[in-house]
Design a protein around this nucleic acid. Structure first.
Length: 264
DNA sequence: ATGGTCGGTGGCCGA
């Protein structure tokens, strides 16, 4: 079984790329983020024709998360318990969707960006992550053998080698101590970054800004992760970051992260 | 040559 996560940066502008990638990559479950579509705008039919069921949560042009699965898709859940909101009215809230696919509890997560040190959006990001930790820790306490994959764009670079130049990030989000602490707390709750051992750095990234020729200059960040529960992590046979998908016209600014699971 | 992008939207903002 093969599962993956990909921030597609608009499903409507990227649907040909996503369908082409699914046809090539033999992926059973794909968590996507930043669909930038509401429910009626989501291009469902082509994905269904490829054999994928889709669960999507999108409100407007901001954010939006979905799970595509060809191994069943049941018990869809929008958000996690006590997921905090931000803004009045909250305009950016389509950030988490969960479903059970082929025995795996798959989550597609779009962690708040945080915007800048000192910005209230960073407080919201940290609060959101704390609530995610509580929820995910609770799921493991309830069922320590649960196969859970927390997949998505975490908007955190947990290690110095996860950005091309730490000096460039001295006054930036994504690398700050509170953000890294929040990520580590979820790891300490029992979840493992399962792709890292199979895609060792430095210089291994999942995101490259569209600006300033970041991709050809290899100015990237590793911010997309699959965090596996113990039972899921023990099934991991391999992982890859599909850097090729970042190339060429019409690419998302993120690359897919793929994790290969042993049969049970 | 010291700048160079996308997306969705609506006449800029977010990443």
């Amino acid at each position: 079984m093969r599962i993956a996560t990909w921030n597609v940066n608009s499903i409507r502008s990227r649907v040909d790329r996503v369908e082409g990638w699914l046809e090539r990559s033999d992926c059973d479950v794909l968590a996507i983020q930043e669909t930038k579509a509401n429910e009626s705008q989501f291009p469902m039919l082509g994905l269904n024709a490829l054999g994928y069921e889709v669960a999507h949560h999108g409100l407007n042009q901001w954010n939006g998360v979905a799970i595509l699965s060809r191994v069943g898709l049941a018990d869809v859940e929008i958000g996690f318990p006590d997921m905090p909101s931000y803004g009045d009215p909250p305009a950016h809230e389509a950030r988490a969707i969960g479903a059970t696919c082929g025995g795996v509890r798959a989550w597609s997560l779009y962690v708040p960006n945080g915007r800048a040190l000192g910005d209230p959006h960073l407080d919201y990001k940290l609060d959101w992550l704390e609530h995610l930790r509580r929820a995910a820790g609770g799921w493991l306490s309830t069922d320590p053998s649960a196969q859970i994959a927390l997949m998505g764009d975490w908007n955190i670079a947990p290690q110095d080698e996860d950005v091309w130049d730490m000096a460039e990030f001295a006054e930036s989000t994504h690398v700050s101590a509170p953000e890294r602490d929040a990520f580590r707390a979820i790891v300490e709750a029992g979840f493992t970054d399962v792709a890292r051992a199979h895609t060792p750095g430095p210089g291994v990234y999942t995101y490259w800004d569209y600006q300033q020729l970041s991709f050809p200059k290899r100015h990237g960040m590793r911010i997309d992760f699959v965090l596996g529960s113990p039972a899921l992590s023990s099934r991991v046979k391999g992982a890859a970051i599909d850097r090729e998908e970042r190339k060429g016209k019409g690419a998302s600014d993120h690359a897919p992260v793929i994790v290969e699971l042993a049969d049970v």
